[in-house]
């Protein structure tokens, strides 16, 4: 396969950045998109040029490290697929492909296609966990979870925190990510004690990070490689409203580390 790549090159956070065109003549349709960049990088290194920096880790679609906006879509055109699992057979021979980093004020570009997504870590640190004494795992049958709740919690828990929802959102909002965490923990009995204090502090951190507000366009749910449904945002809103209108539910201020 012959492919023309227009790749965003940016030497550092303060560089303006630009699209640079590269030709890859020896691409195979069985390659993943990341392997295509690998092939390009090998050539760039041999030619004495700087290779394209990009994030990747597991390359099996579960870690959430890979990013890239390919032809205007986060993780590319294939539904429910991360960039590492996207194969070149989904592109035409001779096609020109534009590759950009995830763009958001809260995700500053570190270099080329690598963005700093620690804003997500801080949103999680604000309350996206269950405070529990560590030790051996408790007996699973001691806390029964009804099947529908377990299913919904699991569906939300498939969020890998890649940030594609933010990249796709016209408002740069992380509402789908936030909704996934709120739904995942809020559906389970273990998440109940901190359910309402969690939503308050996570929403506050989300806004403080500079993510925008949701306009319910649904772009995020289409871009999501894990197909997190849009109704988790409704769940987020419902829990937030409940926490705001009930002092008892909001409870004491969440513990700050």
């Amino acid at each position: 396969m012959r492919l023309t790549l227009k790749v965003w090159r940016q030497s550092g956070p303060d560089d303006a950045g630009r699209l640079v065109t590269y030709q890859v003549d020896d691409a195979s349709e069985d390659m993943s998109f990341l392997e295509l960049i690998d092939v390009l990088n090998e050539r760039l290194i041999l030619d004495g040029e700087e290779p394209v920096a990009f994030d990747h880790d597991c390359r099996e679609g579960i870690c959430g490290a890979c990013s890239m906006v390919i032809n205007g879509e986060p993780h590319g055109p294939q539904k429910a697929t991360t960039t590492c699992q996207l194969h070149l057979r989904h592109f035409r021979d001779g096609e020109t492909i534009t590759v950009e980093p995830f763009r958001a004020g809260a995700f500053p570009v570190v270099r080329d296609l690598v963005v700093d997504r620690s804003a997500f870590d801080r949103v999680i640190a604000a309350g996206g966990y269950i405070t529990a004494p560590t030790g051996t795992a408790p007996e699973a049958h001691s806390v029964p979870v009804p099947k529908p709740q377990a299913d919904r919690a699991f569906a939300a828990a498939t969020c890998i925190g890649c940030g594609a929802c933010v990249a796709a959102c016209p408002n740069g909002s992380a509402s789908l990510f936030l909704g996934a965490k709120i739904t995942h923990l809020g559906e389970l009995p273990q998440g109940q004690p901190e359910r309402y204090s969690r939503v308050l502090s996570m929403v506050e951190q989300h806004d403080a990070e500079g993510f925008g507000g949701c306009t319910n366009t649904g772009e995020c749910a289409v871009a999501c490689p894990k197909e997190i449904p849009l109704d988790v945002i409704s769940q987020l809103n419902r829990d937030y409203l409940a926490a705001k209108t009930s002092k008892r539910k909001a409870g004491a201020a969440p513990a700050k580390s």
């Binding site: 879509e73 004020g105 570009v109 772009e219 749910a221």
Partner: peptide, 27 residues
């Protein structure tokens, strides 16, 4: 206020990005 925040949330626009889902009404 929300529009201002949305613009600040994406200070650098995409060179190539087309909407894939949102209805005409939403946009």
């Amino acid at each position: 206020v929300l529009t201002g925040r949305a613009h600040r949330a994406r200070p650098v626009r995409y060179v190539h990005r087309r909407p894939v889902n949102g209805s005409y009404a939403a946009r």
